[in-house]
Write a protein that binds this DNA or RNA. Sequence first.
DNA 1: CTCTTGATGTAACGCTCACTCCAATTGGAA
DNA 2: TTCCAATTGGAGTGAGCGTTACATCAAGAG
Lengths: 210, 210
Amino acid sequence: MTKPQTTRQKRANGVESRQRILDATVEIAGERGYEGTSIAAVSAACGLPASSIYWHFKDKDDLIAAVIERSFDTWLAAVQLPGEETGTPLERVTAMARNVAKSLIDAPDFLRLGLMLALERRPAEPRGRTMFLQVRDIARAKIAETAEALVPGLDEESVQILTTYAVAGADGLFVQREINGDAVDLVAMLELHAQLVYEAATRMAARSKA
Amino acid sequence: MTKPQTTRQKRANGVESRQRILDATVEIAGERGYEGTSIAAVSAACGLPASSIYWHFKDKDDLIAAVIERSFDTWLAAVQLPGEETGTPLERVTAMARNVAKSLIDAPDFLRLGLMLALERRPAEPRGRTMFLQVRDIARAKIAETAEALVPGLDEESVQILTTYAVAGADGLFVQREINGDAVDLVAMLELHAQLVYEAATRMAARSKA
DNA sequence: CTCTTGATGTAACGCTCACTCCAATTGGAA
DNA sequence: TTCCAATTGGAGTGAGCGTTACATCAAGAG
């Protein structure tokens, strides 16, 4: 997900410029969506001319995809930081939810922009949308994995249902917070969500064994 | 929400034209979002020139707001149709969730376009977004009302938490279905959601009494 | 028939869009 | 010093945007 540094490049501020362009883009795209993100606006926000943007990125599609990629890296780093891997299964699930909540508060750009792209269905699907769905599947797979590890005895279908429900709850609560702002206590809500999902999981596992 | 028919107007197809414009707009806006919805595209889709669109609607903002308004009416009619008002509280909540699921499958435009508008945060907020948030609060109030009626003993804060969680689950599951298509059984997932919310509610009520 | 009003058709307006061309600058390599 | 390649600056492209002006048409009213 990060560029290999084959040749040392200190002489010009190319790398820094690239970051500044991405910073400006994630801000604007997170506010106005794909179509609403104009190259002129990005240029004004980062202080670099349009030609520089097109030197660093092939086209607008490429720029948006790069933003998704980088903001996913940021979010993934935030969500994986404190690896609380001790305690009861319920405690571990709750800690996981708390991490997700904090990371979504600290780095909301990834999910906000991603959901906007995901809801749009234009004829020629932009690369950014595909990229979002791909990295989202990675997160989904990790959740499924965790479910199987912490709640033994779950059949395949139950895991799928629980995973879908878990992701949906996170998405929905995130949307609520985006709409209502700090009035929504994302940490508390996601902890509640984790608890409810965990209970549903244990019940499904018990039913599956019987 | 609907126009009063003061004078009979049979001579020209004005009312029908208005509907055709709204139909075309909801289709395009549901695919491409606010900025992606061009008057030219709407004009091509409904077969009427741009001037007709501007005769029926003040500007693009007005057009999108009208689409939100009409699709909310459609959705509200769908969700209120079969008034299952008998049975245990859990059965009633589940029936309610089933109605919501069916209505979202039959008339997804309202929520899809609304969520897209809600996630966007442009400087000059479009009327369509405000309209969506308003009608969404209506739905939210109805859920809170139902919670208090079916689960007595809930304090104010618990009602707010439960309502937020209930709406978030519906939003999130809807998004999942928009992304993954028919692979997501929206009816089953929302029934599960209703069950989990109901159990959480009874537990909160019990804890509140103690 | 004429007059009025609702509605459509045609053609443009000024502006912004994504994108390109190319000259200028910059700093390390030779 | 000369050269080269990585960037930047700025002007410009045609296409599309939202919106408007205005002529035109259909039909009920007088």
